[in-house]
Computed example of a mutant assay.
Amino acid sequence: MTRAAVMGAGSWGTAFAKVLAEAGTETTIWARRPEVALALDTEHQNPFYLPGVQLPPVRATDDHRVALDGADLVVLAVPSQSLRANLDRWKGDIGADATLLSLCKGIETGTLLRMSQVIAEVTGAEPGRIAVLSGPNLAHEIVQRQPAATVIACSDAERAGAAQRAIATGYFRPYTNSDVIGAEIGGACKNVIAIACGIASGMGLGDNSVASLITRGLAEIMRLGVALGAQPVTLAGLAGVGDLVATCTSPLSRNRSFGHVLGAGGSMQVAQEATNGQVAEGVKSCTSVRALAAAHQVEMPLTDAVHRVCHEGLSVNEAVGSLLGRRIKPE
């Protein structure tokens, strides 16, 4: 029987622990904050990130050694930019043959590494031990058992299958895939495009505008993914289009909500407050994705515009103007 440790007790980590437990997998959640761990362990609720949601009985702890003890599936559910520092603390307590399943979506600032590359570099794990999960998986819908699908990407088909069985439920359907690069690029870039769609929504622009941003955003993601070795079919599936559409259109999406505040005239600080202190990954990822694209000579104008709005003081009106003023060309 699989024993899972979910390292991170934010909304998605908590929701994923619920999926694991309801799939029959023995599950322990690690929380950075003792008060979160206590609420999860004694009340089976996370009032800080998923208030009002009753969880099945799962163990919770703020001691990573307790969580990792005996775990053969280690689920990494921390913000992408903190993954390296956390793994540095955890690596000595991770089982030598444990599968490392990343829920983290981003490109590391500075190194421009994908999350699976960060995991391999810090832990020394072989690529076949590292899996990535990505798909249209909004935590607040998952905990309500609303039907959803996802992708587990891993170069080792046997490990991917084992992880698939550990999370499969009547409402959560996992598919396997060997294209780790595609799953990670789709997951990192969609957060950036979601900020752009949120900005458009906040400005009062309609569905035509948002649909155009999603479609051109997908073109950017595919260009970068293919340049890095991803399979286009992956980005046309759940880990690409599926995740992109959900994140760009749902008010439950932190990245879209962040962008919406900016589009409505709010400051970066106000936008951060609107996400209840939870991380909008696209704010940092836009810079690292932009740099990664430049390193591979890939044109990503939407990503560039989001970076300039978030980090260089470009107004949203100027950003729209710069995009519309680009030269016309074939699709």
Results as ranks from 00 to 15, higher is better:
residue 108 E to N: 05
residue 158 E to C: 13
residue 305 A to F: 04
residue 185 I to Y: 09
residue 212 S to Q: 07
residue 274 A to P: 04
residue 83 L to F: 08
residue 32 R to Q: 11
residue 210 V to W: 02
residue 147 P to K: 02
residue 145 R to M: 12
residue 194 A to Q: 03
residue 238 L to F: 10
residue 26 E to P: 01
residue 61 T to I: 05
residue 33 R to G: 02
residue 216 R to C: 13
residue 212 S to N: 12
residue 258 F to D: 07
residue 274 A to H: 10
residue 200 A to M: 03
residue 72 D to P: 00
residue 67 A to Q: 09
residue 224 L to W: 03
residue 45 Q to S: 15
residue 146 Q to T: 12
residue 109 T to G: 03
residue 31 A to T: 01
residue 105 K to Y: 00
residue 145 R to Y: 09
residue 12 W to Y: 12
residue 107 I to T: 08
residue 215 T to V: 14
residue 72 D to R: 09
residue 96 A to Q: 14
residue 281 E to I: 09
residue 301 P to W: 11
residue 253 S to Y: 05
residue 319 A to N: 07
residue 58 V to L: 12
residue 88 D to S: 12
residue 234 T to C: 04
residue 245 V to A: 07
residue 1 M to N: 12
residue 185 I to T: 01
residue 157 A to W: 10
residue 151 V to P: 00
residue 292 L to F: 06
residue 276 N to V: 14
residue 83 L to M: 14
residue 121 E to L: 13
residue 164 Q to L: 11
residue 2 T to P: 14
residue 137 N to I: 02
residue 126 E to S: 15
residue 217 G to F: 04
residue 286 C to R: 06
residue 303 T to S: 14
residue 199 I to P: 08
residue 262 L to S: 10
residue 92 G to C: 06
residue 240 G to C: 06
residue 234 T to L: 01
residue 139 A to E: 06
residue 27 T to W: 05
residue 210 V to F: 06
residue 324 L to S: 13
residue 57 P to L: 14
residue 47 P to R: 10
residue 298 V to N: 02
residue 56 P to L: 12
residue 25 T to E: 01
residue 180 V to T: 05
residue 322 S to D: 07
residue 195 I to E: 02
residue 219 A to Y: 05
residue 196 A to W: 08
residue 40 L to F: 04
residue 316 V to M: 10
residue 30 W to F: 11
residue 85 A to G: 02
residue 155 S to N: 03
residue 39 A to D: 11
residue 181 I to S: 02
residue 274 A to T: 12
residue 60 A to R: 02
residue 140 H to Q: 15
residue 9 A to T: 02
residue 240 G to E: 01
residue 110 G to F: 13
residue 207 D to C: 02
residue 13 G to L: 01
residue 88 D to I: 13
residue 197 C to R: 08
residue 194 A to D: 00
residue 235 L to M: 09
residue 119 I to W: 01
residue 316 V to E: 00
residue 304 D to T: 15
